[in-house]
């Protein structure tokens, strides 16, 4: 089936060399080397990677009525693009918006991340698997701790701006190289397809809970420590911003959500 969809996207974007990198229920993600509107010799400013761009394509769903499908694709694609723009203006690390074609369901965005030494993409999941292979001292070493705290910090940044991600998993978190010489990373969140604005404690707690569950199922060996560090990082931003009461609300609700633990417990 994906062949037909790929043919369709190639029709919309002829002359772009698209490489499929992931396919979910709702969208396909491609990488391309050609910028949507800049000529070859002008490199885009303000992007960490000027040679690769992400194309996220929401294909037509043939089971839906055409009009309904257009309405949904348009509003979701535009919604996600608006959110990316908002994140950029808030200075939260996430892919920058490059171009939007809402009617065809296409978003162009910045390519974040790099190749790990084992050739895999630097999502948090792949990176944790990579260091877990190196042995326990690496897997729960200082670097892992720093990265997990950064993840928590990044989520807190989102939540303090009343945005919830809606689909946090270790593959929706990407490590970005901060230095070419030493191992220093920053953390970016990707895939805001299910995100929304919300100031509800419940939504924030569920957001964290979903990630906790994802970590337990994909990295069972050390997930307890990872989750602990994650919450440390999350907490640290709240205390920096002197929002301790807000933190307590989330913490309390998270404990309740964990106990409930039956909804959305199908991760993995």
């Amino acid at each position: 089936m994906s062949k037909e969809i790929i043919e369709r996207v190639e029709k919309i974007l002829p002359d772009f060399d698209l490489k499929l990198v992931s396919q979910g229920a709702e969208a396909l993600v491609f990488v391309t080397e050609k910028h949507p509107y800049l000529p070859k010799d002008i490199k885009p400013a303000g992007l960490t990677n000027v040679n690769n761009f992400i194309v996220k394509y929401r294909p037509r769903k043939p089971y839906r009525h055409e009009k309904l499908d257009l309405q949904i694709t348009k509003s979701r694609t535009a919604g996600e693009a608006k959110l990316l723009y908002k994140l950029d203006s808030l200075n939260i690390k996430a892919p920058k918006l490059i171009a939007l074609d809402a009617i065809n369901g296409i978003i162009w965005m910045e390519f974040l991340g790099f190749r790990l030494p084992n050739g895999n993409f630097s999502s948090l999941k792949n990176w944790l698997w990579f260091i877990e292979k190196k042995g326990e001292s690496e897997a729960i070493g200082q670097l892992a701790k720093d990265v997990m705290r950064l993840v928590g910090y990044a989520i807190a940044e989102l939540h303090l701006n009343e945005i919830v991600h809606g689909d946090l998993t270790s593959s929706n978190i990407v490590l970005v190289k901060e230095s070419e010489t030493e191992e220093k990373y920053s953390v970016a969140l990707i895939d805001f397809g299910l995100s929304s604005y919300s100031n509800l404690v419940e939504d924030k707690a569920v957001d964290i809970y979903v990630l906790e569950r994802a970590l337990v199922s994909t990295h069972p060996q050390f997930s307890e420590l990872y989750n602990e560090w994650l919450l440390e990082g999350y907490h640290s931003l709240y205390s920096e911003k002197k929002k301790i009461n807000a933190w307590r609300d989330v913490e309390r609700r998270l404990a309740a959500v964990r106990l409930r633990g039956r909804k959305r417990s199908m991760l993995g």
């Binding site: 979910g24 229920a25 709702e26 769903k61 089971y63 009525h65 309904l68 499908d69 949904i72 199908m266």
Partner: peptide
């Protein structure tokens, strides 16, 4: 019908992708 069933099919598809 079109609207309700499209919603049902969408969440079913998501569940299928997940498991």
């Amino acid at each position: 019908q079109e609207c309700l069933f499209a919603m049902l099919v969408e969440i079913t598809e998501r569940a299928m992708a997940h498991v």
